[in-house]
Amino acid sequence: MRNLFPILTVVAAIFVIWYGAAVALNAPWAKDQAKRAGVELTFSELVADTWSQKKPKLPAPHQVTAEIWKTTGEMVAKGRAFSKRSLIYHSWITLSATMLGFVMGTGFGILLAIGIVYNRVMDMSVMPWVIASQTIPILAIAPMIIVVLNAVGISGLLPKAMISMYLSFFPVVVGMVKGLRSPDQMQLDQMRTWNATAGQQFWRLRLPSSMPFLFASLKVAMAASLVGAIVGELPTGAVAGLGARLLAGSYYGQTIQIWSALIMAAALAACLVAMIGMIQRMTLKRMGMAQ
């Protein structure tokens, strides 16, 4: 609550800068138009024009909001929430690829982490490659994965989900390895004095104590997964999804459409990360680990 006022100030400042920048960036076009028409623009006319152009360099926030409302709320009101012109439809396409990739990546990452923690050979051979692979710009191979999988006959959701999986599985591996190793020698010894089997040691000590690490990396993985899905939609030729909206918008100079897709993607990311945060708080509270 203490932070609310400063945050609101900053957000307000962002909007002021945004409106100001819209005037500055769109003014040349407005002046040019006015000159061709042979009229002189007063300052207020100029501002009004820069905030209501059809293809502005930088659309004003209210234009973007109107566009988002037109492609979501109005569509729902007309009962066409899932028509191809609706942003909800495109968000849903991206969201489904994101979630599928996220689930696959998390599952794969946890399995790999367990292998790394329990098997010395795997630890020594795989772990350096996992870390090295984080330094590689993996997104660069997104177009190739899409095209190759298409050639094999796999298309639609799965190729995009593969890219999401690829991006989201690294943070999970690194976080889970750290988490599964977080119980100290004393706790492990305690398990041994209770004559715990390896399974019991895993389920009752290692897995529970890895939870804070898991959730921290899940948040990173979710954000990465969404980026993967959006980039994965670029090379498919702008068919459906938020990434496709971005690409189509940039082809036809529809800046308002680009911005509305961008804001939608941001909202989606915020919701997904917040959701994980909520699950994290609930789980840790029930496990008695909440701070």
Partner: peptide, 20 residues
């Protein structure tokens, strides 16, 4: 004010800014 906003923005799919 800026730090929470910065943290929020750092989690957004900023690659989307590319076409703009």
């Amino acid at each position: 004010g800026l730090l929470p906003v910065g943290n929020f923005v750092a989690a957004l799919p900023i690659v989307g800014m590319a076409p703009i």
